[in-house]
Write a protein that binds this DNA or RNA. Sequence first.
DNA 1: ACACTATATTCGAACAATCTAATATTCCAT
DNA 2: ATGGAATATTAGATTGTTCGAATATAGTGT
Lengths: 114, 114
Amino acid sequence: MNDSLRRFKAGIFQALAHPTRIAILEHLAEGECSAGELIEKLGMEQANVSQHLGVLRARQIVVNRKAGNQVFYSVRDPVILEILALMRRYFHQHLKESMEMLEQMEDLPVEQSG
Amino acid sequence: MNDSLRRFKAGIFQALAHPTRIAILEHLAEGECSAGELIEKLGMEQANVSQHLGVLRARQIVVNRKAGNQVFYSVRDPVILEILALMRRYFHQHLKESMEMLEQMEDLPVEQSG
DNA sequence: ACACTATATTCGAACAATCTAATATTCCAT
DNA sequence: ATGGAATATTAGATTGTTCGAATATAGTGT
């Protein structure tokens, strides 16, 4: 009972847990946007962006509207954007540790052979 | 903005994206708690809970304090709890769809009349 | 019907996360 | 030192996620 609620929440977090999907949502925060525009802005493979949109759609984080040839996406509920805004705040509050974490994530020293 | 910033955020969301870790954080929301208490409250394997605590620790979402034999955990920054509270709000605002999603997720039969 | 554009889906390999069982560490008491 | 309790770590099988390539679907104009 409580666990399925948590599985639901975990599912939403899982959907947010990818840099590309965060980028998509940050673009959509400024308003509705077509799939094509997103692909262009992100500079990524069409199929890849479409797959990520699929993940967001499956969780109903975004909704879409067809207009002729195109599909326009938007964030269904601004609460999701509030969550992203809080995450930004979290990042800034812990800027120092965050930077260290980023450094570790990015320039992992390679083990020396010998 | 920067992709590494988004990778950082995605990492936090990833850390939140598991029912057990959400349960841990919801317990910790009520105050500091030892690993043992968490294990008991959750009714899960010791190693498993410890691994999940490890994930939360790695992202610095929780901090710990040793007292003798025991290790007490707490949430480092209440912003994380605010994020969880927003998620609860999100769930309630979309209760209907959420329930449908849960049913699909679990393949539970809906209450049948008859 | 045909070509063209926009978007979605499927497939399979590469990679990451999760679980259990076993083992290791740390602290306290004797 | 030795034993026992609390917690952490490792190993390995399993499952889930992500990517690019290829393919499919749907709408538009002719």
